[in-house]
Design a binder for these strands. Structure first.
Lengths: 368, 368
DNA sequence: CTGAAAGCGCTTACAG
DNA sequence: CTGAAAGCGCTTACAG
């Protein structure tokens, strides 16, 4: 256009391709898209078009296509950052989401918020044509706020802490998982079992507390309020509350075992214990929840409850895609009932039988 | 909610807003965007327009806007997954990227590839208007391939392993970092210092090897080829190569200290040593590189070289934004020279003075 | 100061 | 079978 050489090379358009091949832009579109109607393009013409496109490095402009197709081929993921650390839980789920999205030829874009309550409008604001659907990751909001989500965008939630009408939730049997790992600790001879919970009131945190209490009671152990500490699912806070507890209690009173509401908190606890010279698992057994990468990169490796985070992320995409297809017509209908995944206990080096149960064995051998 | 169950709720358009307010779509646009020309909208009209927009839940369609503005307000991040595990290095960098992008009001979309060499075309394919610029994370490709990157999209690389023309690279002084930590080991009395490197040939791996060698030579130690092992930056392979080396060597020949090319490899080495009853740091000192979260969650905590990964991610966004602004006119010019961050040695419990230098001290006291 | 028109790049539906 | 036209939703540039 401009005879003066401009710095920014402009991307080639369909019109450019058509011009180079001596056909109309429309013919180029038909040939490149292999639409039904492209049968009418003669093989030679089509070859010329493909060649021109290749030579010009033609890429269909996604915004233009989206405008007419009303489809961006992109799914959004909304997540809140607590503090400023992206946690590993999120990464595992994102892993599954990206993988599944790629399988459907969809892009994934991540939106981060500070706070579900205040930012729910921003979640809605993002539904402006840039995404075809949205996955809400561990959302916490009121149902009134949830009602403000735009109707024209389909939503799927994962680990939702509140039920929103018409939003399918993907979850795991957290209460069962918590129960099973605490039951295991009891079987191994531990009696004074501490739980470092998530924020009280959140569905996920409460379910884990319920499982913990149930397993204790089944084992004939009366839950000790002094051994139930509330934290917020982060390593930093896990470390903090553990140190505070240790400061307030004499060394002989440390628990036999500690069950943390998630792996991140367990990492913080591990740091706190190490800094006070309390050995894991020699002095206290420790376990987490989630089976994130980090549970395998601690030394000792962390016993935990596995929820198939990656699969759960993938499932969220599957369901979201069904809803998107349904909206765009043609797709089969979808279900509104929550999807519940099983959990399983993963025993690793951080948990050993209560030492008193084997006091004739030298301490060294406990850690192999 | 909707009793009519109108499935296909369509998002409100500017025309809808204009109609509701009794003005043209263009007037609505001017009022809502507060453009210079919007001064001409009377306060009453503007109020009516804002009210109508609010009531209709109007959101400017991003695809339409992008089409005319040639701007998506989205930056892409390209990353290769080795195996199927997203590693912690990536998480830290992504943290910084998302944070900075949010600050500039930009979205971040992550593209994952299997292999830089084969997928470089796919990196280009993604430059189709959906992103305004791209960050390449630790890319490995040939400069010929790099030349195929679309000219119309600005790129910034982080930890690039090959230099591509016109692509600014963000890096850290890895050679210096490796040198400094090995120098420290020498100062502490260690002589037989092993290095478990990254894949030979990769820029980052070579720089660390060079720093290692230089520090040895400065300390009057002739590098021993038997103590230089090549691995691939993963925990799994780090464990494997360490075990192989131990199998091939008699116990008295184990090194005084081991410097791993990254933290992940060091975790694997830690496992390998533990499985053979070799104590860290009692029998051998160990250190990594990167200062990822995992270096703080091992017992003992891992000495390492810190590179400010998060800041580096943020810097990549800063520079990319400059280039994007420059292309869209108006912005200040940008530099093509690489940006080099400082590294620093972080000493932690996994490194102690060479025991022979303090043989009168009981082993227990070494680990506090 | 105002509104009508053109155009971003593409696809779909419709005449010829 | 083919090309010309309309339109997706928005903003910019241009007449009145």
């Amino acid at each position: 256009m401009n005879p003066r050489r401009k710095k920014n090379t402009r991307a080639a358009t369909l019109a450019d391709v058509g011009r180079a091949a001596g056909v109309s832009a429309m013919a180029a579109s038909a040939a490149l898209n292999e639409t039904r109607t492209s049968a009418r393009i003669s093989p030679e013409t089509r070859a010329k078009i493909l060649e021109a496109a290749e030579k010009l490095g033609y890429r269909p402009n996604v915004a233009a296509r989206a405008l007419v197709k009303r489809r961006m081929n992109t799914i959004g993921v909304s997540v809140v950052w607590y503090g400023s650390e992206l946690n590993v839980y999120f990464i595992e789920v994102l892993n599954g989401i990206i993988e599944a999205a790629t399988h459907f030829n969809q892009n994934t874009t991540v939106f981060t918020f500070h706070n579900w309550k205040d930012d729910i409008d921003r979640v809605g604001a993002v539904c402006d044509g840039r995404i075809d659907g949205m996955i809400l990751l561990a959302p916490v909001y009121s149902s009134e706020l949830a009602a403000r989500l735009p109707l024209h965008t389909p939503f799927v939630a994962l680990h939702a802490n509140v039920e929103a009408e018409g939003v399918v939730n993907i979850e795991s049997d957290e209460e069962r998982g918590a129960h099973d790992i605490v039951e295991k600790l009891v079987e191994l001879g531990h009696r004074r079992i501490m739980h470092i919970s998530g924020p009280r009131g959140l569905l996920g945190a409460e379910r884990r507390v319920r499982g913990y209490r149930a397993a204790l009671l089944e084992g004939g152990i009366e839950p000790d309020p002094d051994l139930l500490i509330s934290s917020n699912f982060t390593a930093i806070d896990g470390k903090k509350v553990m140190l505070e507890w240790l400061d307030a209690h004499a060394r002989p009173n440390i628990p036999d075992a500690i069950f943390c509401a998630n792996d991140a908190a367990a990492l913080g606890v591990l740091e706190a214990l190490a800094s006070r010279g309390i050995r894991v698992p020699g002095d206290v057994s420790l376990c987490g929840f989630d089976d994130t990468i980090s549970s395998r990169t601690t030394v000792p490796q962390l016993a935990t409850v596995r929820q198939p985070l990656r699969d759960m992320g993938g499932k969220a995409v599957d369901i979201l895609m069904q809803r998107i297809e349904a909206i765009h017509g043609g797709g089969p209908d979808f279900t509104h009932s929550p999807v519940v995944f099983d959990t399983s206990v993963i025993l690793r080096d951080s948990v050993i039988p209560m030492p008193s149960a084997q006091q004739n064995i030298a301490p060294d051998l406990n850690s192999r």
